[in-house]
Amino acid sequence: MSEEIYIEQRDGIAHVVLNRPSLKNAVTLAMWSEMAAIFSGLAGEEEVRGVVLKGAGKDFSVGADISEFESIRDDRHQSAAYEVEVDACSSAIAALGKPVVAAISGYCLGGGCHLALACDFRFGDRTATVGIPAARLSIVYGLHSVQRLLALTGVSNAKRILYSADRYSAEQAISMGLLDELHENPGLAAEQFLRRLSVNAPLSIAGAKHMLNGLSMGVGGLDRAAVQRLIDEASESEDFREGRRAFAEKRPPQFRGA
């Protein structure tokens, strides 16, 4: 493991911790890859019965580290490769046959929300601020995350979240389905919850998780080629470049739809 992610284990519960508190736990490309490996590895650790995913310091995660986009996500090809790593991470979390709880304080935005959506449950405190600001960078949020968002919040709330790029308070997030429970100490509450689940049959939990995740992710008649085309167009747009410039310059972006 790198210093940017570490694991603590206590009596069968693993805590996977994003460890860039000075940068609000912004996630680099390398961290997406590392998390995929960590969660895949936890599948083989029989003594681990549940996982808490959390951030060091005051924030869960402000999202992807946009400062590196200029060099690693500048066109449709780089964007597609980046999304492969992001999806591999969320797939590893979702595929883990053990319950995973995101313990959320402070910012849970964009890529941070992507991580939380892949977990089985999301516990927050009253400092939690949740949102997906993709529309302020001219990014089309990834298909798997949109499917998970839809399953949790319903179509109207999912559209509101993605169209507006707004940030939602803990109370709003609860009402929209983005958070499941509020606690003074979400990390401790998540650990206690997982200990309750750990007395139940692991194979029952793994089977239920596999079926429920699969049922919630059904795409029906969705045209995947059209989805990829929309993602590619946004990845190569001048608006995406303008979104990055505006973010770096701390000013409102001026989008043209191209």
Rank of each mutant, 00 (worst) to 15 (best):
97 G>A: 12
81 A>N: 13
173 A>P: 03
113 C>F: 14
130 V>A: 05
91 S>W: 07
90 S>R: 06
91 S>P: 03
161 I>S: 02
80 A>S: 14
129 T>Y: 06
72 I>E: 09
116 A>S: 13
122 R>N: 08
121 F>K: 13
133 P>S: 07
160 R>T: 10
175 S>H: 11
75 D>T: 08
176 M>D: 01
108 C>Y: 03
89 C>E: 00
146 V>Q: 14
133 P>T: 05
97 G>S: 10
157 N>G: 07
76 R>D: 14
71 S>Y: 13
112 G>S: 06
134 A>L: 03
69 F>S: 05
136 R>H: 15
100 V>S: 02
131 G>M: 05
108 C>I: 06
154 G>A: 05
167 R>W: 08
176 M>P: 01
146 V>H: 09
109 L>N: 06
110 G>A: 15
73 R>V: 08
122 R>I: 12
127 T>Q: 04
97 G>L: 07
131 G>H: 05
107 Y>D: 12
173 A>I: 02
98 K>Y: 04
93 I>N: 00
117 L>W: 04
172 Q>Y: 05
172 Q>R: 11
141 Y>T: 09
85 E>F: 07
95 A>R: 09
138 S>W: 08
111 G>Q: 02
118 A>Q: 00
155 V>T: 13
154 G>L: 05
125 D>I: 09
181 E>G: 01
114 H>P: 01
138 S>D: 12
76 R>E: 15
77 H>E: 15
73 R>M: 10
108 C>A: 12
90 S>C: 12
127 T>F: 01
107 Y>R: 14
142 G>F: 03
89 C>V: 02
160 R>L: 10
76 R>C: 14
177 G>M: 06
100 V>E: 00
122 R>H: 09
117 L>R: 02
88 A>E: 13
161 I>K: 04
143 L>D: 07
98 K>T: 03
164 S>T: 12
74 D>I: 11
67 S>Y: 13
171 E>L: 13
159 K>I: 09
112 G>K: 01
103 A>I: 01
70 E>V: 12
111 G>S: 07
163 Y>A: 11
111 G>E: 00
141 Y>F: 11
118 A>P: 01
78 Q>M: 11
71 S>W: 13
69 F>E: 02
159 K>L: 10
93 I>G: 01
179 L>Q: 02
119 C>R: 00
130 V>M: 09
174 I>Y: 04
172 Q>K: 10
139 I>N: 08
67 S>P: 05
82 Y>C: 08
98 K>V: 03
99 P>N: 06
